[in-house]
Design a protein around this nucleic acid. Structure first.
Length: 116
DNA sequence: GTATTGACGTGCA
DNA sequence: CTGCACGCCAATA
């Protein structure tokens, strides 16, 4: 089994991988779950730096207002929009209704899924 | 070594 | 609603 302790960004990747299809979360919430309170910015950095070979539903991470946080009029912005709608998440003006689509994980189940 | 950047969040005017 | 300041801090210049 894996013994080395995950780096901060590896923990972030782990948490993001738990967001189910059709649901979204926020940078700040992911930071909290990864044990990095008040470090929402680091979550965005970690997602940008994520290696292409790991499977990572980065598009399910939005800002606290439910908006796509990537600068508008960029290809990546359009891509995130498309990936969200492809799995049934409704995006209006770059924004998602969090009341409908936000991921509310069971904390106890998370303990079994995370290696830290 | 210092300075700036950034896919953020919160509070406040 | 829109800005703006500040906290945050690894990565980058």
């Amino acid at each position: 089994m894996k013994t080395s302790k995950p780096s901060n960004q590896e923990r972030i990747w782990q948490v993001v991988q738990l967001i189910p299809e059709g649901k979204v979360s926020s940078y700040g919430f992911i930071a909290d779950l990864a044990g990095l309170p008040r470090r929402a910015r680091f979550v965005s950095t970690a997602l940008r730096k994520a290696p292409a070979h790991i499977e990572l539903p980065w598009h399910r991470v939005l800002n606290a207002q439910g908006e796509i946080s990537i600068p508008n009029y960029t290809p990546l912005y359009e891509r995130q929009w498309e990936l969200l709608e492809r799995e049934g998440i409704i995006v209006k003006k770059g924004k998602v209704n969090l009341a409908l689509f936000s991921w509310k994980p069971d904390i106890t189940e998370l303990m079994f899924s995370l290696s830290f």
